[in-house]
């Protein structure tokens, strides 16, 4: 099968049933995408598929087809990352790549989201450390 990840075409072999998260982490060593629950409940595994945030831990790798996958590794130059660091929008950091991916998708669609829009768009990314207030701030100030 083929996967288009971060504008790079990969050939890989995995069984049907392998999730996109497993393919990214185990086959392509793109371990920035985290698996925290493995069943679609927490958002740590969020990646973009054709620009939309999806849960890679419950996406079948074989169902991705020709769609373009963007992982946190593909967003390394995005100003949102610096904004997260500036705002201290992370503590342990394990959920953070997923948070950043969701946040990037939000501001690509709405460069100046309201608080309500941020809370609506980010509600699927759980953070046990409770960095939420500063995640909100990082998204509000991402272009500073």
């Amino acid at each position: 099968m083929r996967l288009d990840v971060n504008d790079h075409a990969y050939e890989l072999h995995c069984e049907v049933g392998t999730t996109l998260a497993e393919a990214l982490r185990d086959e392509l060593s793109l371990t920035g995408t985290k698996i925290a629950c493995g069943e679609g409940h927490c958002g740590a595994c969020t990646v973009l598929v054709d620009g939309a945030p999806v849960l890679s831990c419950i996406t079948l790798a074989h169902a991705v087809g020709d769609a373009k996958v963007t992982t946190i590794e593909g967003l390394r130059e995005h100003p949102m990352l610096r904004s997260f660091v500036r705002a201290d929008a992370l503590q342990c950091g394990f959920c953070t790549p997923g948070q950043v991916v969701s946040a990037v998708a939000l501001v690509e669609a709405r460069p100046e989201p309201t608080t309500e829009e941020i809370r609506h768009a980010m509600a699927g990314n759980l953070c046990r450390c409770g960095a939420y207030p500063k995640i909100e701030e990082a998204i509000r100030t991402w272009r500073d």
Partner: peptide, 29 residues
């Protein structure tokens, strides 16, 4: 397990669309 693309609406197998229910249920047995 195999994954096939449906060519029409006659489906022989477990249909999957977004997979948000089918994939977790498969993985949980």
């Amino acid at each position: 397990m195999e994954l096939r693309q449906a060519s029409d609406t006659t489906v022989d197998g477990v249909p999957i669309h977004g997979g948000t229910e089918v994939v977790p249920l498969l993985r949980a047995g």
